[in-house]
Design a protein around this nucleic acid. Structure first.
Length: 491
RNA sequence: GGCCCUAUCGUCUAAGGGUUAGGACGCCGCCCUCUCAAGGCGGUAAUACGGGUUCGAAUCCCGUUAGGGCUACCA
């Protein structure tokens, strides 16, 4: 159906969400694939709002959709607020257009007015279910003479527009991901195109808009695969070229059901607020159903644009697995420059209501250097090593049990005395002193290192002890030793 | 129920007739080491099942099973 000239047609793709709430991670992936495909081919990525269902409209949903996309770096070239000559990009603002094309369909005998009440339709469906036959419209209004239908419509009788589906035969189309798909006409319903409230259904609006907006490739979720034949039929009725089609596999819960709330977070905003990097989320979501064909795993947006192709998109649904997302977050976080991390750590300190101004950039940079290899999230700098920002308030009881012995206070006091002799010591000077002290005490270094770590940090894990001491400084070290000895002696 | 789609380690996936079925996450072990990480090395674990086609099948065909989607005046 596509002539060879269609190949040189500029690439124009769209993401067309309904404004019914937040942006779902599945939606993010669909948007991302469209975006990557567009950018890879120097094409345009268009955002279109499909708000044809008045009852599901949610206030503020468009704004939250756009802000999530922008945050993720999936920027649209055309869409609400960015007219590229094909607007408006909100379907509720295009009602007249849909009516015009629906009228054309009726005119040509490819659609008809249907006056059946919703009550009759319900009864019909009930009867069909009882008889165990597939529920479908019985086409009662299909053969009402045009003049009569027009008269009834003009007299104000409530009606919808339905498309005429051929009774027999079948329809085959080519999907870029799934290959040939065939469906028999007889299992297709005479789909409603214009609802009685005057709004179009998805099926009419999507075809009209994709054509008018010169969409070259329709890349969308698999849930649309079974209604695609109806869309193709409409393209044919209108005499339009069908865009290339690509139906993406779905994103799944761990139990393989369709990804949903209840089983974890599904909103992009949830991941954003949990501290995930957009780079990680994008990288992760891109790999749910696509891979570059080699063993590289860490990709930036630009690299994804460079490598992306529909040919390498898989067919099977993919489980959204947070473990791997966490690992990717770690990978992307460690690729950030120190100054980028610095900005993030400052934000975290503010969030934790810790006095930001108390710490110089140089100080924070030292903390970052010490913790970089140990954190997956920016918030970990504060959560995993709070001792860089305030003295320990308590001491890990397991570590106390294991490392704090009756003679420990005496050792630490001795160490503290030795430290007091030092003048702005560096890491290796602390180390040398500890080494000497251990020898003098005739104990192994571990007898000092572990309790000292506990005393200054309250915990048993973290960066090298001497790094910690250097960062918090001599005075603070001695202060913390004193406090620990007081609190942990004679428990 | 009907129609459509899908099926490789627990998870994401590579291998599009010939491989010891590869990589990554996770998990386990070892090395490194003051702890925890990071890093290095190693291990665990898969072609849903049954038939064909073929010298040869994860790969092609058919069936079964399982999962998913659709079946609205929702998208």
């Amino acid at each position: 159906m596509q002539s060879s000239s269609a190949i040189s047609q500029p690439v124009r793709v769209r993401f067309a969400p309904s404004p019914t709430g937040y942006l779902h991670v599945g939606g993010l992936r669909t948007a991302l694939y469209n975006y990557l495909f567009a950018k890879h081919h120097n094409g345009k990525f268009i955002l279109r709002i499909e708000d044809t269902d008045q009852s599901r409209k949610v206030e503020g949903a468009v704004e939250s959709l756009i802000s999530a996309l922008e945050w993720a770096g999936v920027h649209y070239d055309e869409g609400p607020g960015k007219d590229g000559g094909f607007g408006p990009y909100v379907q509720s603002e295009r009602l007249k257009t849909y009516h015009r094309y629906a009228a054309q369909l009726v005119e040509h005998g490819n659609a008809y007015y249907c006056f059946c009440t919703q009550q009759r339709l319900e009864d019909l469906r009930e009867r069909q279910n009882a008889q165990k036959i597939s529920p479908a419209y019985d086409r009662r209004c299909r053969d009402i003479p045009k003049e009569e239908a027009a008269r009834r419509k003009d007299s104000g009788e409530s009606c919808v527009v339905r498309m005429k589906v051929p009774i027999s035969g079948d329809l085959t189309f080519e999907d870029r991901i799934r290959g040939k798909v065939t469906i028999a006409h007889k299992v297709l319903d005479d789909q409603v195109l214009i609802k009685s409230d005057g709004f179009p259904t998805y099926h009419l609006a999507v075809v009209v808009d994709d054509h008018l907006m010169q969409i070259s490739h329709v890349i969308r979720g698999e849930e649309w695969l079974s209604s695609t034949p109806k869309h193709i039929m409409l393209y044919r009725y209108f005499g339009w070229n069908v865009p290339q089609l690509a139906h993406l596999p779905l994103l799944l819960n761990p139990d393989k059901s369709k990804l949903s709330k209840r089983q974890g977070d599904v909103a992009v905003e949830d991941y954003r607020s949990k501290g995930y990097l957009k780079e990680a989320l994008i990288n992760f979501v891109a790999f749910l159903g696509w891979n570059p064909g080699d063993e590289r795993e860490i990709f930036t947006m630009d690299e994804l644009i460079k490598e992306f192709s529909l040919e390498r998109v898989g067919k099977a649904g993919a489980v959204f697995n947070v473990e791997k997302l966490n690992w990717l977050n770690f990978q992307h976080l460690r690729r950030k420059t120190d100054s980028e991390v610095l900005t993030m750590v400052k934000e975290e300190l503010t969030r934790w209501a810790l006095d930001n101004s108390k710490f110089t950039d140089d100080y924070l940079l030292m903390v970052i250097g010490a913790m970089r290899e140990r954190v997956s999230f920016a918030k970990d700098f504060v959560e995993k090593s709070p001792y860089f920002f305030k003295p320990p308030e308590e001491y890990d009881s397991d570590v106390v049990k294991k490392r704090w012995k009756p003679e420990t206070p005496e050792y630490l006091k001795k160490l503290s005395d030795e430290f007091s002799q030092l003048n702005e010591p560096r890491e290796d000077e602390y180390e040398a002193v500890l080494h000497r002290t251990a020898e003098a005490l005739k104990v192994k270094q571990g007898e000092l290192i572990h309790p000292l770590r506990l005393a200054v940090s309250g915990m048993g894990t973290g960066p090298g002890l001497y790094d910690i001491l250097f960062i918090i400084g001599k005075d603070e070290t001695m202060r913390r030793i004193r406090t620990a000895v007081e609190k942990l002696t004679g428990r």
